[in-house]
Design a protein around this nucleic acid. Structure first.
Lengths: 234, 234
DNA sequence: TAGTGGTCTAGACCACTGG
DNA sequence: CAGTGGTCTAGACCACTAC
């Protein structure tokens, strides 16, 4: 197993950071020094240093040098898709209702539309086997091209639904997580009882222009669902 | 405002991806072709292409070429710190109790220690002004160097507490979010009532070796707290 | 002024892919 | 085999920083 030059230098410096040889705030040796010390070209040294920067260990200050970052970052990566549980298990979706109507105040606000703009609403119950796990509502400004045929809705993911027009690359998202308890309506739909803890996950899809393509909430019975985040630097 | 060469090419290609000129699965022109077409060196072209790759638009297949990725990714970035609300407001921590004792079964499992290993437990209530917002418990395997003086505990963040020994760079984290309802104990501590919705956020700190430095849960009254995630490619 | 990182160039060799 | 991306080199010029 032969190691690449730039990976080698990257590992050496990372090692020294982990061991505390370089502390947050410290300056690394200059590109020129490293290039002499490790007998490699400046370009190769720069590749190593840019790797360190990518991984969140350092930053560079032009005209000064490279510095070790403060490692305190509270960022986590959450992998969320409304039809999958945290262990990758897929939920079955069953359509409850699809309507086209004027928006409520809440929906107007979330979709950033006016009261005279039609809204498509899709309601589903998600199952694991025969057990109802979550209730899901999505709202989209009504527009031509949105599929309203049952089998299309059933298997389409939210981004696909919301993005019949725009390229998927141009879509941005926001996520919101909160806790609540089941009211009568929700308890009925999920065949559960009033007062049960509910984890509500909201998703919004929109373009750079702030044009909102869709907004929805999924209300999970907490006993069947939780979210997990992985640590991420930087 | 003068634009850098490699940024220029990066933007041009990104544009074409957004507009659908290049679709997922398509192959980009080769480095050589781009280098001819845009009249810049291969190295500069490579810099642009590596930017695209970093941002999640493309991947490269050695010996073949660069390809457009499927944009479907369900990853969000969550910024979470137990003492801050989602709008950046800081909570005040008030110490309730600090104990050193043998672990419960649950704590044994989370900290991956045996029943004869002492555990430090720190309990706090978090306030906004005079309003109790959350109840917070942290567990750490007892070891010399862990501060047990009140003022140290009060102002230290969890990673700092857990990492008196290890370098902060070496610490990994996991996050867990679930919903529950307030039991009598929690309701009493938060001056609230039984049955209120609670958002519980668990955090675990550990090393590469799987040695667990600390585990804790923060139980938020849902009316005062929610989590927000930002979309991330990749 | 001397030193630093940031950009850009031309050119070489390699391993891999596909026909 | 020709074409592709991956690695590495030497060298040039610039803008910025610090003294």
């Amino acid at each position: 197993m032969k190691e690449l030059l730039y990976v080698y230098l990257f590992e050496r410096i990372k090692e020294q950071i982990h061991m505390g040889v370089f502390q947050p705030g410290d300056m690394l040796p200059s590109e020129k020094d490293l290039s002499n010390q490790y007998q490699m070209s400046r370009i190769t040294v720069r590749k190593s240093l840019s790797l360190l920067e990518q991984e969140g260990y350092t930053y560079s200050a032009p005209g000064k040098g490279y510095f070790i970052k403060e490692p305190v970052s509270n960022k986590y990566i959450l992998d969320y898709e409304e039809l999958s549980s945290h262990d990758g298990h897929q939920f079955q979706g069953k359509l409850v209702e699809v309507t086209i109507d004027y928006p409520t105040v809440r929906v107007m606000k979330e979709l950033r539309i006016s009261e005279d703009h039609y809204v498509v609403s899709i309601q589903r119950v998600l199952f694991t086997g025969d057990t109802p796990v979550a209730f899901d509502v999505k709202y989209m400004p009504y527009a031509k091209g949105i599929p309203l045929v049952e089998h299309e809705i059933k298997y389409a993911t939210f981004p696909e639904l919301a993005a019949k027009k725009a390229s998927l690359f141009a879509i941005k998202r926001e996520l919101n997580v909160k806790a609540s308890i089941a009211d009568e309506n929700l308890a009925f739909k999920l065949n559960s009882s009033v007062g049960k803890p509910i984890l509500t996950v909201g998703q919004k899809f929109f373009l750079e222009t702030n044009h909102v393509l869709g907004w929805g909430e999924t209300h999970y019975l907490s006993e069947y669902f939780e979210l997990n985040g992985k640590w991420s630097f930087g």
